[in-house]
Amino acid sequence: MRTAIFFTAALAALASLLPAPALGQANLEINTPAIAALQRSMQQRHSQLASLYNSGAVGFTRDGNVALRDAKAVPLAQRQQVNALIASENQDRAALYREIARANGHPEWENDIRATFAQRWISRAQRGWYYQNASGAWVRK
């Protein structure tokens, strides 16, 4: 089942990059309006987050979220907004994992989808960005 989930999750991730898949393809339902709305919301936020990934202030956690890694990399006055940004991003991510699981007709896959996405975010992260390894320690890619 792991492989199947990885495949569907991979497709879902690709769905944000590719035009809508042609009719009749099995995983078209992955691109539901809810998922599209969440991806749009995450894409809009991405430019703000990317500079925080670059500075090492924010990194990818092993559970598919983002977290504040080094508050000192952010000017004092902006630390609160960064916290808000992280909270919104994680809210979207939680909803995204849940929606992909439901769109696949398997709400119980949510945790596996989250785990698969956690790996995907890390593997797609740019050099220099930070992520948490299996023991929870921050590692620079």
Binding site: T32, P33, A34
Partner: peptide
């Protein structure tokens, strides 16, 4: 409905 849009 997901996000108030029909899915199924």
């Amino acid at each position: 409905l997901a996000n108030w849009q029909p899915v199924k």
